[in-house]
């Protein structure tokens, strides 16, 4: 097992390098360089001090030297200081990251809670009315623009009914709340963003569960189970479910970049204080250090998610042997 994990990590090294190369390339090839940006932000910056900035960022050196210097700092998670407020980019990201992880973990949990029973049920009752209605809902969820769904839900539940807050993660008076009130307040703020970010992935996932389940229910060992005299329920829950759900581990791993990508738009709409909104603001302000930091960190999170998924899969499926 440990050798397997070790091998998986070794295999990831070229990918990690690739991620940094890609991020660096984006920065290197985009029009306008960081020194221009700083100069644009601050009119007082003279031509002379611009030169100094170019030296400071090493922008006069060859690209491979620049990359090497940048890489050395990235290894210790130093992405430089934000152009906007001069704070270290890594610190700004670290402040926002927990909120994004909270949002996405809750979304994954909600997604699994809905899509597993839905997918299993519509596979077991294939072509029933329930299955058809569900298929229709799934296709609609898959096609709905998330920001529009967010807008509509905000209007209905936030403005018309006034049941839920429509922005932020906490209320103004959060500091004065008791512990219980704080939890409740957080939950109320999280309901809409979590629900909206679940919409698309729920659709994909319940399709996977359904087709996986249909596939498993045709397998030979299901015949053995029935011929032993097991009931439908026992066959589905004891024999089919585990086989059908195993591939989900990998799919959840693969869905991480989509979820993070979705956070950019969802967090912006809900003014949610996460990494996605920080990223959107940084992109709009061309705040290179923050953008690069977010690029590298979200790619690393994805990679880490995939590694964890692979290891979990390997330990859950007895057929896989670690060599």
């Amino acid at each position: 097992m440990f050798t397997y994990i070790f091998k998986r990590l070794i295999y990831s090294i070229p990918i990690i390098l690739g991620i940094t190369v890609m991020t660096f390339a984006v920065m290197f090839f985009t029009p306008g360089n960081p020194a221009d940006m700083v100069a644009d932000f601050n009119i007082k910056v003279s031509a002379e001090s611009k030169e100094r900035l170019i030296k400071l960022y090493g922008l006069d050196k060859a690209w491979y030297e620049q990359y090497w210097n940048w890489l050395k700092r990235v290894v210790v998670l130093d992405f430089g200081n934000s152009f906007r407020d001069g704070k270290p980019a890594s610190k700004k990201i670290a402040e926002r990251l927990p909120a994004t992880i909270l949002l996405n973990v809750l979304s994954i949990i909600l997604m699994l809670c809905i899509s597993i029973p839905v997918g299993v049920y519509s596979a077991v009752k294939k072509y029933s009315l329930f299955d058809r209605v569900l298929t229709a809902i799934v296709f609609t969820c898959f096609s709905v623009p998330v920001f529009w769904a967010a807008l509509m839900l905000m209007t209905v539940f936030g403005l018309w009914l006034g049941w839920l807050p429509i922005s932020g993660l906490t209320s103004f008076e959060f500091g004065e709340f008791s512990f219980f009130e704080k939890i409740l307040d957080l939950c109320r703020h999280l309901i809409l963003p979590v629900f909206v970010s679940t919409l698309g992935s729920f659709a994909v996932m319940s399709r996977y569960v359904r087709s996986g389940m249909l596939d498993v229910l045709k397998q030979d060992y299901i015949k053995t189970a029935y011929s032993k005299g097991l009931s439908k329920r026992q066959v589905v829950f004891n024999h089919a479910l585990k086989n059908a759900l195993l591939p989900l581990i990998t799919i959840i791993g693969l869905s991480i970049p989509g979820l993070i990508g979705g956070s950019f738009i969802i967090e912006t709409i809900f003014s949610y204080p996460g990494m996605g909104r920080l990223g959107y603001e940084a992109i709009m302000a061309r705040d290179y250090p923050v953008i690069m930091g977010i690029g590298v960190i979200s790619a690393f999170l994805t990679l880490l998610g995939n590694i964890i998924a692979d290891v979990l899969y390997a330990s859950a499926d007895p057929r896989i042997r670690y060599k």
Partner: peptide
Amino acid sequence: DIMLCFPTFFL
């Protein structure tokens, strides 16, 4: 694989 690690919408 490297491309898959980046959130597409971010890029």
